[in-house]
Design a protein around this nucleic acid. Structure first.
Lengths: 339, 339
DNA sequence: GATAAGGGTGGTAACGATAACATCAAAAGC
DNA sequence: GCTTTTGATGTTATCGTTACCACCCTTATC
């Protein structure tokens, strides 16, 4: 910058201003400086600027895995909207492990983000401590924690599944099973399974048809294997809820391979409103938690929190209302010409 | 850090050392300092450290979209392996637009990454200029550019599709169509389409059965729609290659809805070895470009380049060999009991 | 014509860490 | 016992930018 200043015949301060949206530099001077800088191959150093101004321009976010279309959507919606405010998303992956999350949060905080977004509401004590002491807005997403660390943009995984159970029972299904939600790391999956059990009990029905699917992320293949076990061990099951659409689709393919008719012999529902739920034959009943909205609303909240002067005005709770999306896979009378 | 030093009764320099893997601090002092720091809620400031040491710890990467399992795999493999070397991935999205890529590259370079990874080999002139002048390793991936900017870890999209065409023709198919690769932004899709045309010409066959699918990313739904147009306009087509597995699966579902038998009436092949190609009924013939390997090998290359002292020892070319994975969707005699 | 207001510009110190060198005590070597 | 080596720690300047204040000159205001 010093060299650019010299070459353009101005002070470093003026060069610095020329690279900002600072109006107090004449258009003439600004253009001359910009051109000189371009010719010299000068690239502005954001890190030094950040250090001096004590503003990093980073928003940190932890997600369980990059390889999950739902979380990717949330990250995408967040990243996109943050960009409009000149903020950059700094992403880290926890692999569905709250110990890895702890390490990650510590590492991310060292970059001095202006806010931090975490996926889920279950953390180690140390993570909670680090987050609450960081002195920046903390937003938990994809959950409604009982005792939030800071702000929340999310929904209740348990309540959502309960609504789905209610729907299936209203449709006349009675011997319901649940696939997934058995692994330690998958807190959202476990919440969904608990919601299933609670709803079944509320209806006075047997809630013991639980099929494990292993560690998250649960794939299509694991969904198919779990469905195989379900059909082998509890063949009178008339409907199954899967922890996600991917496992639901896998379960559906297992039925196709075995000649089990969906939904006539068994109904299948998923979670997440992945594209495949709307395209597969038959289409799959699912729940849309609006992942992109979660990201965008989180971004809006962050921008609002950073723009106001008072550091803390009480925690915000933004509840997303997931939407039940009916597919052919749970219709009591088969509509598709395919099955 | 000054406060920690004061509280622990040492100099700032000793505190600085206590936070490094620097052995030249006695275990006693180190522990005392760490504990003091923890109690005070002190968090190390990476940005300041980076400024002074002129090492950011960042590796920048541009990908077209976060919402694509293949690119996500590459980013995941890269990120994971970089972490072992203490490097952090700084990710940006181009939305399949080389103008957005230009902006993004400029923005990323301001963070002083130690290397930059770009997806694809087509860039604006200014992007090429910025990259080559940045003075850091540049790696292009997912392509084999004719004139690379720096290093390359990739494969030829065109050659890969040609191998697939050769296979289908050897199987006895002759009236082949191609879905996708028509949009400006999708350079890799366009390369695949060109590979299709070249291969068909080489075999002396009609290469005009080209169905557009619009702007990337091409979804399952768009694949289904394109298949609808293909079946409507060119019903005698006996095999179709789709630009990706997602569109191939969409195409397959359209056939299911219409009662068109796959592969008896029409064979379908995709690209990318997405999980769905192995799970769907019938399974889909595809090509595996080993996206995770691309990421890991890129990470290895970066770590090697950064560890050696000489700044430039000539560009490296690491060619990934995509693997043809046969599925039921192109078998000449249907094996599945399903169709 | 004197004063005020404001746009444009420059000088200096500082953000929080580390590179480089200096220092000092204890251990090792002769 | 004296020099040399080694390990642990301290001192100073600096990375590249911006906050803060000072300054000048032009233009408006009375």
């Amino acid at each position: 910058m010093k060299d650019v200043a010299l070459a353009a015949g101005v002070s470093v301060m003026t060069v610095s201003r020329a690279f900002k949206h600072d109006g107090s530099v004449s258009a003439d001077t600004r253009n001359r400086i910009r051109q000189t800088a371009d010719e010299m191959g000068y690239v502005f150093d954001t890190m030094a600027a950040n250090l001096r101004s004590q503003r990093s321009g980073f928003i940190a976010m932890t997600i369980p895995s990059i390889n999950n279309a739902n979380f990717a959507d949330t990250a995408g919606g967040l990243s996109e909207r943050l960009a409009t405010a000149g903020l950059q998303l700094l992403l880290g992956y926890t692999n569905y492990d709250i110990l890895q999350e702890e390490q990650l949060v510590e590492q991310l905080l060292r970059r001095r983000p202006e806010a931090i977004v975490v996926t889920g509401g279950r953390h180690t004590n140390r993570t909670r401590h680090l987050l609450s002491k960081a002195g920046i807005p903390v937003i938990e997403t994809w959950d409604l924690p009982a005792v939030p660390v800071g702000h929340v943009v999310g929904f209740s995984n348990a309540a959502t599944i309960q609504a789905l159970v209610d729907h299936l029972i209203a449709q006349g299904f009675a011997r319901l099973a649940f696939i997934g939600g058995d692994a330690d790391g998958d807190t959202r999956g476990a919440d969904r399974r608990l919601g299933f059990i609670a709803a079944m009990h509320r209806h006075g029905l047997d809630a013991s048809r639980l099929i494990g699917a292993g560690q998250p992320p649960i794939s299509m293949r694991e969904g198919a294997q779990a469905m195989g076990r379900l059909l082998d061990t509890l063949p009178d099951t008339d409907a199954v809820i899967c922890v996600s659409d991917l496992s639901a689709f896998g379960a559906l393919t297992e039925c196709l391979r075995r000649g089990v008719k969906v939904p006539d012999q068994i109904a299948i529902a998923g979670f997440g409103a992945y594209e495949i739920s709307a395209v597969s034959v038959p289409t799959i009943t699912t729940v849309n938690p609006f992942p992109r909205d979660i990201g965008q609303q989180t971004a809006d909240l962050i921008i609002k929190l950073l723009s106001q002067n008072q550091p803390f005005t009480g925690p915000t709770l933004i509840e997303i209302k997931p939407q039940l999306t009916l597919g052919q896979s749970t219709a009591k009378i088969a509509r598709s010409g395919f099955v």
